[in-house]
Design a binder for these strands. Structure first.
Lengths: 192, 192
DNA sequence: TTTTGCACTTAACCTAGATTAAGAAGTTAT
DNA sequence: ATAACTTCTTAATCTAGGTTAAGTGCAAAA
């Protein structure tokens, strides 16, 4: 059973025909590490589901400073929600960090599927709700926790990622510079 | 035509009967400024839609420090998404800042409505999507903008709120202390 | 009308985290 | 293997924003 169908069936049940229809509207692609799936200024045409590998979304400040919005690994969705919904040019990049197998679902097919399989409207509603809750928590953490506390929370939540992605990108996700992150990490280790 | 129906019809069209059914599943309440509609530790049972007045959601740190998550004025929805979805105790407060007329939609009724009027599944999906996009932008702003820049953005986006809510709460929303906010504001005025 | 209590300001001092710079260590390509 | 890059570390110095504290102005009790 494909990972993406399992993912959907966590929230809504599909018949065999519905599964087939769904899969017929997706494409599977393989990408090497460092590939860019979406660039700032482009219109996002797909939702990306990760079968294997690791992706990240980030934007680049006027300056040249990157800020990581999200990581996605096995079983996660990623995309530029703003651009995907508005069909206007976004300001996110989506990049492969570790060789990846990705399921692509185009916006057009997604909307057709909403009409053909209304249950999917529910699925994506729930997916978006969960994503919103996670984002709100991260927002509040940014307002109320120190960098150390945010890092500890990150470690608990993303054990797998810590040794797989360059730490400068974890620093960026947490909202600190790589230099400060390195210093902080050393201090935390010494304390243990 | 009631404000909440107008709000829904921005995204999906309802028949006269559907409108009636929807409204029959809501309650209208009036609250005085400072009322608390939801406290930390409680399970959130309603989505709140603001007909008039102003609400805010916030949490309180171990310390005693408040952090404003959101403001809601006329035509906006507010709630504790985490608690509402999980039906577990949340950590948000929801409070009235200016005398308000509020439409309450219980979780139970909302779920019944999804079955009775599947179009509403679409409506709430779109609502949640838009909310997620706004949250992601705020998150990125927190990572990449200075307090001044965040304040300028806030002013453009919420002209109405600036003179209606205590500025210590705007400070909190922006993630700075009231003292720093006051200093920053004075500096910005002098510069003009 | 006085008092109590917030909201706001100002100012001195403090610190988490940024910046700059330079070297060490690990990767990738040749 | 070696060159060329990138990531990570360390350290000195700097600053946006926090903390503490005292004072002002104003609205709601009493």
């Amino acid at each position: 059973m494909s990972l993406i169908i399992q993912n959907i069936e966590k929230h809504v049940q599909l018949t065999a025909e519905e599964k087939e229809l769904f899969l017929s509207k997706t494409e599977i692609h393989h990408y090497k590490a460092k590939s860019i799936l979406l660039s700032s200024g482009e219109i996002c045409k797909y939702s990306y589901f990760v079968n294997s590998g690791i992706l990240r979304s980030f934007n680049i400040n006027d300056n040249i400073v990157e800020h990581v919005l999200n990581f996605a690994c096995e079983g996660w969705w990623i995309g530029d929600m703003y651009s995907l919904l508005s069909q206007k040019p976004g300001n996110l990049f989506i990049q492969v960090l570790e060789d990846a197998e990705i399921v692509l679902l185009s916006k057009k097919n997604q909307e057709e599927l909403y009409l053909e399989i209304p249950k999917l409207e529910r699925f994506f509603r729930i997916l978006t709700e969960n994503s919103l809750v996670a984002n709100q928590e991260r927002l509040m953490d940014g307002l109320s926790l120190s960098a150390e506390e945010r890092f500890e929370k990150f470690c608990k939540k993303h054990k797998d990622l810590i040794h797989k992605v360059p730490q400068k990108q974890i620093a960026s996700y947490l909202g600190v510079t790589p230099e400060f992150f390195s210093k902080m990490k050393a201090k935390m280790l010494k304390r243990t």
